[in-house]
Computed example of a mutant assay.
Amino acid sequence: MRADQIPLSRGAFARMATLDLDVPAVLDHAGLPRALMSEARPMLTTAQFFAFWHAVEAVCRDPSLGLRLGDGTRSEVYDMVTAAALHSGTLGGALDKLARYKRLTCPEDVVVELGRDEAAVSMRWMLAEGHTPRLLVDAMFASNFALAERGTGRALHLRRIELTRRPADGTLLHAHFRCELRFNAPQDRIVYARSDLDLPFVTQDDGHLADLLPVLEGSLREQTAATPLRDKVWNVLSRGMRGGHLRMAQVAEALHLSPRTLQRRLGEVGTSYQQVLDQVRHQLARRLLDATDLDVGEIAFLLGFEELNSFNRAFRQWEGATPARWRTTIAG
């Protein structure tokens, strides 16, 4: 897994300022030094990055700020991965590159799930403990949508936006994305029509892509080799928490290992498949109970528990209370 470093830039701070965000006040509220604004390439941990975005929500009175920040992708390219996506031949190729390389720039996992008629893109911060700040989710989706429309050179008709947040007034989101909104979702996802993946990119540039891909592939090989096995297992499990139970054999296959080898190698680093599975379930259970109104039974299903009682017992071991009581307690 990539080191817990998320790069910002003075350009990002400048863009926030042009959108009337009081960046010094945000940094103060987040407990971060104002000196970050003068650094050429400041780095934040995931916890600091989330604290920054929570501070944005607290300080900023404009609920459209996340959308407007993300929409900057219509005219700017922020990193090498975005450039590679923009130079792809089709929308599908662009999304594939984001999914393959995004974690090289920060500990964010992008997943593209293909259905018969849909292509869903989800984004997950791999080292986050709490749920993703609302304006950050808006910015990520707006950026992805802006890249898709910039690349294709046309207005796209999304299927829907799925949000792991409680139902709220979606007027701004609906006006921006022009599609159905679904709240209380198990994952934050932007859903395209699958046929749109074949749309050609007017920004295609094979020459630039030929220069970028070898660099990205080399970096990916280095990162993969340096990623601990426990983190790889965690990532596969986190991606698969959408109902049903991921068997160890399925995870082993995804990592190109035999189940026996997977279990042995996890044991060598002092853990086991079941321990990692429990840790992933625990973290996701806390997020969903905190951020959504999903029924406890629905959460149990998403986490792969066959019975609600099994989930209740496991959660009581983790937190010393049932999921329902824990949710009531944190709600105040």
Rank of each mutant, 00 (worst) to 15 (best):
P133T: 04
R178F: 01
P133F: 04
L32I: 02
Y101R: 11
Q250V: 11
V276Q: 10
T322E: 11
Q187T: 03
A148L: 06
T329Q: 13
L209N: 11
R265Y: 08
E76N: 10
A94K: 06
L32K: 02
R313G: 01
L257Q: 13
P186K: 00
R134G: 03
T46N: 05
T18R: 15
L303S: 09
D71N: 14
Q279M: 10
A84F: 09
W53Q: 06
Y273N: 13
A185M: 12
H176L: 11
I6Q: 01
N144A: 13
A55Y: 01
R61A: 07
D278H: 15
Q317H: 05
L91Q: 03
A3I: 07
G153F: 02
R160Q: 15
H131L: 08
G72P: 03
A331C: 09
T45W: 03
R165V: 00
L289H: 07
Q263V: 05
T171C: 06
L209F: 04
D290A: 14
M248Y: 00
R150L: 11
A210M: 02
T227H: 05
A321N: 10
D20S: 13
L19G: 01
F145P: 04
S75E: 12
L32F: 01
V276D: 07
S310H: 12
F301V: 06
R154P: 02
P228C: 03
V56G: 05
F201D: 08
L36N: 10
P167D: 11
D79G: 10
T224M: 13
D109R: 15
A324V: 06
F305S: 04
P214V: 01
P7K: 03
T292K: 08
P214E: 03
A175C: 00
N312V: 15
L65H: 09
S310Y: 01
G304V: 00
D22L: 11
H157D: 13
